[in-house]
Structures are given as C-alpha cells and as structure tokens.
Design a protein around this nucleic acid. Structure first.
Lengths: 239, 239
DNA sequence: ATCGGTTTGTACGCTACCATACATACGGCG
DNA sequence: CGCCGTATGTATGGTAGCGTACAAACCGAT
C-alpha cells in the first residue's frame, strides 16, 4: 500500500508552526511500517526519528533470557527515537511495529539540527518526552500492582486510541510478549473479556465491541496517562 | 546538622563548565533534607529543582487506593524536578527523601532561564534525563519479571551507590512502600539475604556485609542501568 | 479435500506473593 | 527498671500467574 498519508496526521508534525513546517516538509521521508519491523535495536545508534501516522510502534525491552516487556506505545501522537535529541543516541530498548501502517521519518542529522535551534520544535519534543516518561512510569506501577485483566484492557485502549476503527490485528502470543506474560494467560483474560461482551477474538483479529465497558474495567493507569498527554500536548488530535 | 556540604559533590553541578558555575553558585541554596520530607507532590507545580549531595530521593507513585511503587531513585548523580525544564511543570509522582542528608536547590525561574540558554547546561540535563528514563523503564521490566529477592538486592545496591559507607537507615515497612510489596515480604526476603551473610538487619539499620554477593544475586537490571548512567554521564563521581 | 502450520482453548501441579493475624523483640522514656 | 510504641518474625489459607503439556479449531496451500 502506498497511500499518500498526510504527514500532518502525526500530531507533533501538525503542531509545528508554519515556518518550521516549510523547512521540514522536504526533509520528511515516507515509510511503510510493516508488522514486526524493528525501527531500532537495543544499544544501536539511531539514524532516523520516526513519526507514525497510522502505524503503532511498541517500545519494548528484551531481557537476557528472552523475556520481554513493553515500556511504552507510540502512535500518531508521538515520535520514536527520543534518544537522538536527548543526547544518548541509543537506548537499551527496541522499537517494533505493533500495528502496520504508515509513518514519516527524518534523518538523525536533520533532527538534531532542528532541535538545537532551541525553539518551538524543541519545546514540543520535550513536552512529548515528558508525556512518554509518564507512560513509562505508569507502566512500572501497573506491572507491579494490577491484574492481567485490567492490564489487557489498558493495552487495548492504548492501541485503540492510536488506530482508526475498532479492530486490531494482533495474536495473543504477541500481546503476551508486550505485556510480559504467558500466551495462555492472555487467552484466559481475553476469554473473560469476551464473555462479558467487551471484545470479540478470532485468530489474530480483535474487535472491540464495548469501549466504555473496557474503560470501566481497566485500572486508573490508562486515564492518568491519557490526561497527562492531553495536558502536555493540548493540540493533539481528537481520537 | 549544618555541615557545609560542597554543592559540587553533586555530579551534575560538578560537571558545569566554569562560566556556568560562576553564575550558578550564588543562586544555589543549601537544604537539609530529612527523612520523609516531600520535595514535591503529584500534580503540584514545582518551585525548585533539587540537587542532592548526601541525601537520596525516591520518586514514587501513589495510587488511588494508597498502594505505591518507586519509579526511580535520585542521589548525588542527579537532580529532582526534571518536569521543570521538560515543560510540564509537574508530574503525577511524588518525591520523598528516602535517606536523610544534604542537597542544594535552585529556584524554578533560574533553572528555566539557565536551561533556555540551550548550552552545555541543557545538554547535561537532557542526558541525565535520558539516564533517568532508562532507570524507569528498567523498573517497569523488573517489576514484571523479577523476584522480590533480586529486586531487594537491586534496591540495596542503588541506595548504596548513592551513599558513603555501607549502612542505610530504612525500615522494612518503608522498603515495602518503595518496592510496592508487603512489609512481610520484605522481612522474608531480608532474612534470606541475612542467612546468606550478605546483610545484617537491625531495627531500621541495614549493614551491607558483602556487596559482591549482592551483585551476584541481583537481576541484570542493576547493571544495565548503571552502565547507561556511566555512558551518558561519564563525568560522574566514582562511587 | 487433505494436510500442515498457526492460533486458540484447556488442564494440572507449582510457586511467589497476598491478606490477615498475632507473637516477639528491641529501645527509648518515664 | 518497667512500660510502650515501633520494628521484626512467623503462621495460615488464598490466589494470580507460571511452566508444561496437549487438544481443538482454523486457514491456506498443495
């Protein structure tokens, strides 16, 4: 698929003042992000930052023994590759396409230059980074205290917010990798949600039937993060 | 106690170029940080950033039902209050003094001004922020996958790195709050470590007897975070 | 239509941690 | 010295999620 996919579907790009946007537009390169593609690997130096429009990227941490856990999710509201302007150039995590779609990317050198202007671009990026930090912290807390059922609800809602439509393509095995639990655990939790009529599951396709129901069942973590994104990035697109 | 406590015991202050240091020095105010003091509360606007020298600060998240979990620890290697220059002005977490000691603080307005110069100060602060992000992500993963015994080791080592000496003043109840587990769980884990001869516990005083032993027992999370701090902030003081 | 790989469902025993309750021990203060 | 509050140790039953194993259902390709 090669739909044009307006770059300004990405909220950060959309938030750029006109002057910056004119500079950026010619530098942006469209990328087709297929399921499973790795945008960067733990410890590797980044060569681009990615601005997803219709794709969803998962930042996940893979441990020595192969166990993994998602630390944050990035969609059209954000960007992948903050280490570039934060100064480290790499992070000990991996960025994987969790839901196929489109995005736009900018070369590392261009990104750094733009950031170093220390103008509105920098401030938006830093506010976004703070929102991302909130998501990560909340994930830490949620991992500690909340039950799998609630976490699954939170995860579904986070994904839904970054998609158009109410269906997501995702096997239970993959959800298990993201949440850092066994596939069987996901099966059981998903069945419980299905029995309540909140979702429908079928071989890698989840249809959300009752979003308010999910919101009622999930833990506070979802709302806390969402509110913080809205506070820090008020220009964001309505979902 | 009102020991002078050189502000440059703090690694970030120590890393300042001379020109910046001369500007900062008169602006820094010494603070005596007693156990339990709250430097900022969830959602409240920060009025200072704090640079601990001998104190240790715990960033913790308190949930609606009162359950809590630590998302990061800050000592002489860092600063408390990144939300100030990241742009949000507040975060949904709380900063509490976990180990009494000294620190220095800077008014919010001064901090912002210095950051906005977009020079070396900004770059150090951003690299520190990235290190902090690593710590938070790793906490999320650790909460998901590792056993309490290992987490306790990690926590002890993190504290030890930020202290002089090998004794820390901390009840099991408080450790439970930090790690987000029951006090009884901490008692049992601490007893296991004690039986192995790694620590000695006595009414709020923990003495670490065998640091290499703790390092051998803890999960990879400790080393990953430590390496990342060293990579991002190479000027840091040897512990 | 059949086969084979993938995805989902189910079962079983196990362990770490939880909730609760209570016992003990220490230490500072009168 | 004895008291009391705080801190630590111990016990009991409950449960969520794990590791493992295997069955069933589905889809696509031959």
């Amino acid at each position: 698929m090669t739909t044009p996919s307006d770059p300004r579907l990405n909220d950060l790009l959309a938030a750029l003042p006109d002057a910056e946007w004119r500079r950026w537009e010619p530098l942006l390169e469209r990328v087709d992000l297929r399921l499973g593609r790795v945008l960067y690997e733990s410890g590797h130096t980044l060569d681009h930052v990615y601005f997803p429009t219709t794709a969803i990227i998962s930042l996940l941490y893979v441990m020595e023994d192969g166990a993994s856990a998602e630390i944050a999710v990035v969609g059209h509201e954000g960007l992948v590759g903050i280490a570039l302007f934060m100064g480290g150039g790499s992070t000990p995590s991996r960025a994987v396409v969790q839901s196929a779609g489109a995005g736009w990317r900018l070369r590392a050198s261009a990104m750094k230059e733009e950031f170093e202007r220390a103008g509105p671009v920098m401030h938006v990026l830093l506010r976004y980074t703070q929102a991302l930090i909130t998501q990560m912290s909340q994930t830490a807390v949620c991992n500690r205290h909340h039950r799998l059922d609630q976490q699954l609800c939170r995860w579904l809602l986070l994904s839904l917010d970054r998609l158009q439509g109410n269906e997501l393509v995702m096997t239970q095995e993959l959800i298990g990798n993201m949440l850092g639990v066994r596939r069987e655990g996901v099966t059981e939790a998903a069945l419980r949600l299905q029995k309540r009529g909140l979702i429908r599951y079928a071989r890698g396709h989840i249809t959300v039937l009752d979003r308010p129901g999910l919101e009622a069942l999930t833990c506070e973590c979802y709302a806390v993060v969402k509110k913080e994104y809205e506070r820090l990035l008020p220009d964001h697109q309505a979902t």
